[in-house]
């Protein structure tokens, strides 16, 4: 009994101390390392530069497709790069950050009950998207006129939003049921 208490206390103390040390020195809100070992400078530098490059490539692709005439070529490309630069920077950061250096992360997220809720909610979201898609297909089948591309784009966006909303509602429902 005393030996067990000592072992547990030691493990507990080590875990607490380890967490404190981790929280003080090696973690940050946005992470402090890349997955290949680089520090904060590498993390921010690489994600920013890669994000800008992705933005410029995206701008060039859109320019080649659309061929706008109202704007100067490079003005258009730079504008597109700026518009999606923030998103592409975040995407690169998410891809290269070592998540164990982000403050508050749990070492084994795949073993948590929240992961089970997320998986179940994802299934519910897919079902929601399928139902929304079915309703939209039925509406299109009975609609006899040409549909503008903008309307089609908004319809697709609506299907995605319904799926995400279904997923969010399902997640909170599972969570509430578990906490009851």
């Amino acid at each position: 009994m005393d030996n067990q208490t000592g072992t547990t206390s030691q493990l507990h103390a080590e875990a607490t101390e380890s967490n404190k040390t981790t929280a003080k020195k090696t973690t940050g809100v946005f992470g402090t390392k890349t997955i290949f070992g680089g520090g904060k400078v590498a993390l921010w530098g690489i994600s920013t530069v890669a994000g800008i490059i992705i933005g410029v490539i995206f701008g060039v692709i859109v320019f080649l497709i659309r061929r706008p005439t109202q704007l100067n070529d490079w003005t258009f490309i730079i504008l597109m790069a700026v518009l999606i630069g923030g998103c592409s920077d975040c995407f690169c950061w998410v891809t290269i950050v070592d998540r164990t250096t982000i403050t508050g992360t749990i070492p084994h997220p795949e073993e948590n009950v929240e992961d089970t809720w997320r998986t179940q909610a994802t299934s519910a979201g897919l079902i929601g998207m399928a139902l929304a898609d079915t309703v939209l297909l039925l509406l299109v089948a009975f609609y006899d006129k040409p549909i503008p591309s903008v309307v089609a784009a908004f319809a697709l966006l609506g299907i995605m939003l319904i799926g995400l909303l279904t997923m969010a509602c399902a997640y909170f429902a599972y969570r509430k049921k578990a906490m009851a």
């Binding site: 493990l11 875990a15 749990i106 073993e111 948590n112 009950v113 929240e114 578990a178």
Partner: peptide, 9 residues
């Protein structure tokens, strides 16, 4: 904390 999972788990 010791097990490396969330309290909810």
């Amino acid at each position: 904390n010791a097990a490396g999972v969330s309290r909810q788990t």
